[in-house]
Design a protein around this nucleic acid. Structure first.
Length: 537
DNA sequence: CGCGCTTTATGTGTGTACCT
DNA sequence: AGGTACACACATAAAGCGCG
């Protein structure tokens, strides 16, 4: 627990992360390790519980070893230890305080090479070549002297072959690997020089590959900022840096009669915490989206609540806003699907309703668009491309309008919150409704609210019996004064009546009802059952 | 192997509220 | 009365998975 101050609040806000001053996280569970082991290794990313585990299971000392002033480090460690940690004699002759951080780490390591020695942040302070060399030195020393029970924790695992530990535990996958130590390999270019410092910005080469199935989602799900679910039909892409998966993107087909399988949308995008802040997320996502756009000839939509992602797209000429840009999660009305979400993810969805979300349409570069057009099916090329240009130009219009209105994100958020308040006021006036997946719980649970959007006042509505189930609506309802009248509704809501009616119409070979007006007409005929009407078809 | 289930968020069509 | 903005409901493509 920490005290909430302005800085913490601002930090949590800019990551769109709700923080109430308390954070909890599960401590990894380490199974029993082999009796009498020599070296154990705990591996996992920063913040995954390595240190906590060391404290709980292996009594990690709170303080580092103390060093006497005016006395060389070499004089305060056992013989052979400096070689083991690859500290040159010239360095070992110095006082502890005169050493660099990397050298100090190795000096402390030299002191911990004893039975039950516990070392956190193993090789964090040295370059990777040196790490391998140190690992080999430690392994040699431990084997030579028959030291038992040394446990090292680290966020690297590149030196494992040179350490040959008896077991490795991953705090990320919670897996314990029991190993049989093998002969130690030589470290190429074994001499360990002082840590090289490179101020040049490194080039990060990330490869994004399609991954069959969703087997890798569990690696990323914990780090998705809102939601841990993934759609079963999501096509999954993984970003690799060297041989490490560092992020993922998934794409879904876009539903809708209008789109007719011509569009896709982005679904889940995650960059693992250790790699965030490098601009990988937006590039990775753009790469996948551009390839779907160019190669598959699909228009691409994407909706995000993440401020960085959204802002990037707002400022990019490769994206235009859609009608849902800069709104809260659409509240599909009191009967809408979002209000029916139950179970494990209800809370995260509820929170999402209070976030400004960005919705964008990918338009790419000139070159992207050429490739997109080229990959469209011949017979529909012009039609789909026209549609693309149409959506694009509408988006541009909206963007222009939006930027000329000079509204800030805060203004929009305030406006959206106001809307929610009004909705809540209506609910408190007419009572809150309860929903289950199949519709409304029991009869009469929806009075008032159902009349808001669905039924005309003063008209007797539909009385139906379908498959033995009774449907009746008596909508004597005074809309002007917004007071629920004598409304009773058995079965379900308007949408279900429509669906139900259409099902019968379809079975009977009639035209489906398309408009509310048609449904009302149907309702006005009151007294007839759908089965009766079916006979008339 | 085939079928059914599951999931998402858009544009469109429709109705409603509010302003001038 | 007309115009604009807002609000809500609807249909739906697609891939994997469980099940028979």
């Amino acid at each position: 627990s920490v005290k909430l101050d302005e800085c913490t609040e601002r930090a949590s806000e800019s990551f769109d992360y709700e923080f109430e001053g308390k954070s909890t996280f599960p401590i990894p569970k380490l199974p029993e390790v082999p009796e009498g082991f020599a070296i154990g290794l705990i591996v996992g990313p920063s913040g995954s519980g390595k240190t906590t585990l060391l404290k709980q299971r292996f009594s990690l000392p709170d303080e580092l070893p103390t060093w006497e002033k005016g006395k060389s480090v070499a004089a305060q460690v056992k013989s052979g230890r400096l070689e083991a940690v690859r500290l040159p004699a010239a360095v070992g002759g110095r006082e502890y305080e005169e050493m660099s951080k990397g050298e100090q780490f190795r000096a402390n390591l030299a002191r911990m090479l004893k039975a039950g020695g516990i070392v956190d942040e193993f090789t964090s302070n040295v370059d990777r070549q040196c790490a391998k060399s140190v690992a080999r030195g430690v392994a040699e020393c431990v084997r030579r002297e028959g030291i038992k029970g040394v446990v090292l924790a680290t966020c690297h695992d590149d030196f494992v072959p040179w350490l040959q530990p008896d077991w490795v535990f991953s705090t990320q996958t919670q897996e314990l690997l029991i190993l049989t130590p093998q002969a130690l390999p030589d470290v190429p270019g074994e001499e360990c020089v002082a840590e090289a410092v490179d101020f040049a910005r490194p080039v990060i080469k990330v490869e994004v590959l399609r991954h069959k199935g969703q087997g890798m989602w569990p690696l990323f799900r914990e780090f998705h900022y809102l939601d841990k679910t993934i759609n079963k039909s999501a096509v999954f892409y993984v970003a690799w840096w060297n041989n490490n998966p560092i992020g993922c993107v998934s794409m879904l087909g876009f539903p809708g009669a209008v789109r007719q399988g011509t569009a896709k949308r982005e679904h889940r995008t995650v960059v693992l915490p250790d790699y965030q802040g490098l601009g990988i997320g937006t590039r990775m996502s753009n790469e996948v989206i551009a390839s779907v756009f160019r190669g598959e000839g699909r228009m691409v939509f994407s909706r995000t609540a993440h401020p960085r992602f959204g802002t990037h797209r707002q400022n990019s000429d490769q994206w235009v806003g859609t009608t849902a840009n800069l709104t809260f999660l659409p509240l599909k009305g009191v009967f809408g699907s979002t209000s029916r979400i139950t179970g494990e993810f209800k809370d995260s969805r509820q929170k999402q309703k209070l976030r400004i979300c960005y919705s964008h349409f990918f338009v790419g570069t000139e070159e992207d668009r050429k490739a997109f057009k080229a990959s469209l099916p011949d017979d529909k090329r012009e039609a789909i491309y026209d549609e693309f240009v149409n959506v694009w130009s509408k988006g541009l219009q909206r963007d222009t309008k939006m930027s000329s209105s000079k509204q800030t994100i805060d203004d929009i958020r305030e406006k959206e919150r106001h809307k929610l308040k009004q909705k809540a006021a209506k609910e408190s006036q007419f009572g809150k409704t309860e929903f289950s997946k199949g519709g409304v719980n029991g009869p009469n649970k929806v009075e008032g609210l159902v009349a808001f959007g669905c039924l005309k006042p003063g008209k007797n509505a539909l009385h139906l019996t379908v498959k033995g189930k009774k449907w009746s609506v008596d909508a004597n309802y005074d809309r002007q004064n917004s007071v629920p009248g004598n409304l009773s509704f058995q079965g379900s809501e308007y949408g279900d009546v429509l669906t139900c009616a259409n099902a019968v119409m379809k079975a009977a070979g009639g035209a489906p009802l398309k408009t509310n007006a048609q449904v009302w007409k149907l309702m006005e005929q009151g007294g007839k059952t759908l089965q009766d009407m079916k006979k008339e078809c």
